[in-house]
């Protein structure tokens, strides 16, 4: 069985992996790296639960082959927390009660982080657009949008 050599940096840690062409980035993150914060929802790019950041852009990790991200910098939800505790974005989600069941939260956080890295002072429309690829079935969108606004306003990222 052929395997490809792939080097990726995930949450500032370098990994050298051997992957099959059929391996999606989502599979690598969850099964190889055991970073199970990233969720598999629909598996076809509709729900955004598997969103991670690849080279500063939010992408669905179910729709990328790991072989395609060789050499990339990747951030998953585990990359938000530091020794100092939760990141300002995570704190805003907690404070605004932007979490109900929590399944969409890692993806929401990644989409929000990608936005704020690119545009630290987004208006509400920009926030909505940035989060449009993430579904929340507990329907807590309002709180999520407020959390991103709060994170941008009060703490910065």
């Amino acid at each position: 069985m052929a395997k490809l050599d792939v080097e990726i940096t995930v949450n500032s840690k370098k990994y050298n992996l051997k992957v099959g062409s059929q391996e999606r980035l989502l599979d690598t993150i969850r099964k190889e790296l055991k970073l199970t914060g990233t969720k598999e929802g629909c598996s076809v790019g509709e729900c955004g639960a598997c969103t991670v950041i690849v080279d500063d852009k939010a992408v669905n990790s179910c729709m990328i082959l790991t072989a395609q991200v060789d050499g990339s910098e990747i951030i998953t939800v585990e990359g938000l927390e530091s020794k100092k505790g939760l990141s300002p974005l995570q704190k805003a989600f907690v404070e605004k009660q932007a979490i109900q069941c929590g399944f969409c939260t890692p993806g929401m956080l990644m989409s929000a982080l990608a936005l704020l890295k690119n545009n630290p002072r987004p208006n509400k429309e920009k926030i909505k657009t940035a989060l449009e690829g993430n579904l929340c079935r507990c329907t807590g969108y309002q709180q999520i949008i407020e959390a991103v606004e709060t994170a941008a306003k009060e703490w910065g990222v």
Partner: peptide, 19 residues
């Protein structure tokens, strides 16, 4: 319940991957 990911249980893999 979420099924096992069938991509990884096929036991087969590609022949050629050209990048």
């Amino acid at each position: 319940m979420k099924q096992e990911n069938k991509q990884t249980i096929s036991g087969r893999d590609f022949e050629k991957y050209f990048q």
